[in-house]
Structure formats: C-alpha cells, structure tokens
C-alpha cells in the first residue's frame, strides 16, 4: 500500500512537472521566442574561429576561402595556427637564428611559407602543387598568398600558437607580419564567442 501511495505521489509529481513543462511551452512562441529566432537568422556580426592544424596547400586554401568568405559576410574571423599549420605563416626566406640541430632539421624539412606547400593528394614531389597553382591562376581562383593578403585586408585575425612554435623551433621572426602570438586560453575564449568553429586537419 505504501508503495502504491508513493508511486501515486511520484506520478502526481510527474504530471505536475509535465504540466509545468506544458505551461512553459507557449512561452517559447511569445515575442521573446521569435526575437531569438530572428537573432539567429539576422545580420548581427558573429564570430567564426578556425584552427588550422594542417599545412597542405588544398586545406590551407579551404581554410582561407572560408575565412575570407565569412569576413565578406560581415563576421569577425580569427584563425589559430598550430603545429603544421604554422608553416603557412612562415616567411619564404630563411631567417638566420641560433637553433639546435633538431630544430634546424625540422625547419629545413617543413615547407617554408604559403608559396611552398604541398598538396594532400597527388602532390607528385611538388609537380601536383605546381599544376594546381597553374590551374587556379588560369581559372581565376585566388592563389593562397593572394587569399592571405585578402584575409588581412578584410581584417581576419591570424594567431600563432606559441607552444607549437616552441616545439617546432619556429621563432616569431620567421613568421610573416601581422601574426599575433597566443595560447589555448585565447583560442578558447574566442571560440566561446563564436558560433562556428572549424578544425582544419
């Protein structure tokens, strides 16, 4: 008997909860609710963040196309470059710096800058990438360095991860101008404000 009564009590509590839920349903349809929908569809500038982890030419082009596109849609865009992605931001010319043997080897083996990236597929020792660049020029597609200039012009923020810079032996002097240095907390705080966050790997 006690069980039954307890169950009944639970049941009635349950129905009360359901009722409470039911009552809250119409509230979504009120003015507040529609405003929220409009805000999602509306024009208020939003933030987009991209983590660029890869240094393949094709992936970098995809990342910068999205970044410049979002900027052209009126959004704030921040791109975080980490690990291999840092190579996209390297200066094409070597900068004389004191480095350890392993760091020097890393530096020599990794592509130096946007003009020297490889394709993720069909690279054929760089011939593929050259052919792709040629085709893109012919078809009026912006090359990666052009896209990067455009991104800068449109106010896309480029941030290099200091931890991966240190691990890979890349110094600030080796990166192109206009790159900010930051850590994971900066990325996370920007990602909190963003409604789109992409990881390019």
């Amino acid at each position: 008997m006690r069980y039954v009564s307890e169950n009944k009590a639970l049941e009635s509590a349950g129905t009360q909860n359901e009722k409470a839920k039911d009552e809250s349903v119409p509230a979504v349809g009120t003015a507040e609710g529609t405003e929220a929908v409009e805000a999602i569809e509306g024009s208020s500038p939003k933030k987009k963040t991209l983590i660029v982890f890869a240094d393949d030419l094709d992936k970098a082009i995809a990342a910068f196309t999205i970044a410049t596109g979002a900027a052209a849609m009126g959004d704030d865009v921040t791109m975080f470059f980490t690990f291999w992605g840092l190579n996209i931001l390297r200066r094409q010319k070597a900068v004389p710096l004191k480095k350890g043997a392993i760091e020097r080897m890393f530096g020599a083996l990794m592509p130096r800058g946007a003009g020297r990236l490889r394709l993720s597929k069909m690279n054929f020792f760089g011939i593929g990438a050259k052919m792709m660049n040629g085709l893109m020029k012919k078809k009026g597609v912006k090359t990666l360095p052009e896209l990067m200039d455009l991104a800068r012009e449109l106010g896309v923020k480029m941030v290099a991860c200091t931890m991966s810079m240190d691990v890979m032996g890349i110094a600030k002097e080796e990166l192109i101008d206009g790159v900010e240095l930051a850590g994971v907390a900066s990325y996370l705080s920007e990602a909190d404000e963003a409604n789109v966050n992409l990881f390019i790997a």
Partner: peptide
Amino acid sequence: RCLQCPGPIVELH
C-alpha cells in the same frame, strides 16, 4: 566577372 568563390561576395562586401 571571372572571379571565383569567394571573389564575388568579397567585391560585394
């Protein structure tokens, strides 16, 4: 004309 994505929307912007 002759601009590929995202060229046209960038020009519009």
